[in-house]
Amino acid sequence: MSEARKEIMGRIREALKTPSPKPHLKGESSKVAGKAWLPEVGDTDAETMALLSDNLAKLKASFHPVENLDQAIALVKDLAQKKNWKNIAYHKNELVTPVALAIAGNAWAVDEAFSKDKLEAADVGLTSCVSIVAQFGAILVSSETSGGRGLSILPPVHVVIAKADQVVPDLAACFAQINVQFGGKMPSMLSFITGPSRTGDIERILVLGAHGPKELYLILVR
């Protein structure tokens, strides 16, 4: 054990010999079931879905619920044409691959080794996700299952394709699920994406696309 570690730990133990009282609380929040003091989650599936849609709209993310994969393909094809997406980076996945391959132009998978410059030149990053948190409109991606770390942040447009049953009501449900899914072995990165990249650093005026994607699309297949 390093000298510094020993000394800091010693200081901590010494300092904590004098206890400090519990904070003065207004109520007993820990006893409220389901953390029902956090923002709404909706009582029914329909309400949760409406909440998600509302949250994404407020975040200026583009939300497209579709009936099946064919509709998703048609939608992305159409977007690609309108927006002139040519260079599409994606990762291999049952939902993502068929969509990527249907787009005219140059779609390439990041699953084989790629250079950082190549990814930087992509117009679009096309990924799956782990789950979607309706309470905040947050999309959770992982380095293990959503194409690594760069794909969802470096290209100027991020398109996420997910299934409707990946929507969870709140963060608590989301964490419970990843604990089960990944067990003790968390991916090296898990990232909640809550709308397109943004900044307010200049006069506190909102600007989208600071360093990450300017546009974020969520296509939800029923």
């Binding site: 956090l38 923002p39 949250n55 407020k58 975040l59 990762h91 990041v110 699953d111 905040f136 409109g137 947050a138 380095s143 293990e144 194409g147 690594g148 770390r149 760069g150 794909l151 942040i153 963060l171 968390m186 991916p187 090296s188 990165m189 898990l190 990232s191 909640f192 994406i193 809550t194 709308g195 397109p196 990249s197 943004r198 307010g200 990450g212």
Partner: peptide, 30 residues
């Protein structure tokens, strides 16, 4: 969420990211 709402008036900040170690075997980059 409270960090975002109290500090910046946002529901959640745009990116909240959890890192566990460097690139793992099988991961594509990092």
């Amino acid at each position: 969420p409270m960090l975002a709402t109290a500090g910046a008036g946002q529901p959640m900040t745009c990116y909240n990211t959890l890192y566990a170690g460097p690139k793992k075997p099988g991961e594509l980059d990092g």
